[in-house]
């Protein structure tokens, strides 16, 4: 539905995006992540036809955005960064203007506007001047315009920027509701959003891909992935360690003497039975377990590892 084909963008001597190849299909919600200045917004602007690529092309439903811009953009709904609005108008007037630019016929105009207003919970403020609305409402008004005409491709640049937790959840719920038959690309700094709504993750840094995969694969990049921490008393700690290190489905076991804990790294794909095996080892060695907790990898850790300066293998990870 949406494809970036070897996209690059240069501003003067600075290469903002390099060799971006990405495809988003129907039903996918692609989370586009990266540090500030990574090239996310630039990539989204190129997809929306606001910025011309220096190389490569963007296709929306197979149509080149720059060769046939009007046809291509018929399938597109775009929420720009900072949610631009016309302050002198009400949400209804603003949506009517955008709907007419999208050439939504007069028969469908009212219904389309009502649907967008209902989807973004704007019923109470539909006739209120945009300049008097709160940040959250303003953001939702701009989100509503991107839904007009029920486009098949949606590009959201930081859709929850500046919203309170309740509003963020409303937006995420909306994206989950509509994603079934759309191709959606969402740029965000909020890593919990990635796990909440995205089916796939694409991370950029310095204009290049550093990771592409599922949110689970993304989390698995963390050094702290799939660990179990066991706090215990009694028993022979060295014997326990030896037995853990030789057990199946365990990568390593190490002793944190300061905290009286054993940290066990599970192998990839390890099953639930391995936890029983670990418990049995402690019981057989007459150790008393004080606490037994899972430490799954943190997305923030994964993000840091992939995008910190000096990180090895920065060219690509998949």
């Amino acid at each position: 539905m949406l494809s970036f084909e070897n996209i690059s963008k240069t501003f003067g001597t600075k290469q903002a995006v390099r060799g971006l190849n990405l495809e988003v299909t129907q039903g996918q919600v692609m989370g586009l992540l990266g540090p500030n200045g990574a090239g996310k917004s630039t990539s989204m602007k190129m997809a929306a036809g606001c910025l011309r690529p220096s190389e490569g092309r963007v296709r929306l439903k197979g149509i080149d955005v720059w060769k046939k811009p009007i046809q291509a953009k018929q399938n597109l709904g775009y929420l720009p960064e900072r949610a631009p609005l016309y302050e002198d108008f009400t949400p209804v007037e603003y949506l009517r203007f955008i709907a007419k630019l999208r050439k939504i016929g007069s028969r469908d105009l009212a219904r389309s506007i009502d649907q967008a207003i209902d989807a973004c919970f704007l019923q109470d403020i539909r006739h209120q001047l945009i300049s008097t609305l709160s940040k959250g409402y303003r953001h939702r008004v701009c989100l509503a315009q991107s839904l007009l005409g029920d486009p098949d491709i949606l590009i959201f640049d930081e859709p929850t920027d500046g919203l309170d937790p309740n509003q963020k959840q409303e937006i995420r719920d909306l994206i989950k509701r509509i994603r079934k038959d759309k191709a959606i690309i969402v740029s965000t700094h909020i890593l919990e959003e990635v796990e909440a709504i995205c089916t796939d993750v694409y991370i950029m840094d310095y204009g290049k891909k550093v990771f592409q995969g599922s949110p689970l694969d993304f989390r698995a990049q963390s050094e702290n992935r799939s660990q179990i921490v066991i706090e215990f008393t009694g028993g022979d700690s060295q014997r326990i360690l030896t037995r853990l290190n030789s057990a199946e489905d365990l990568e390593t076991a190490s002793l944190d003497t300061e905290n009286g804990q054993v940290v066990v790294d599970l192998a990839e794909g390890s099953q639930t039975q391995v936890r029983n095996r670990i418990l049995n080892i402690f019981l057989e060695e007459n150790a008393s377990i004080v606490s037994f907790s899972n430490r799954t990898g943190k997305t923030a850790d994964s993000f840091r590892q992939l995008t910190l300066p000096g990180t090895s293998d920065r060219s690509s990870k998949a």
Binding site: C50, I70, K73, L101, R102
Partner: peptide, 14 residues
């Protein structure tokens, strides 16, 4: 200054 120029560019119009 409003950022609406970008919004206009993204619409299916010349």
């Amino acid at each position: 200054s409003q950022g609406t120029l970008e919004l206009l560019f993204a619409q299916p119009i010349g």
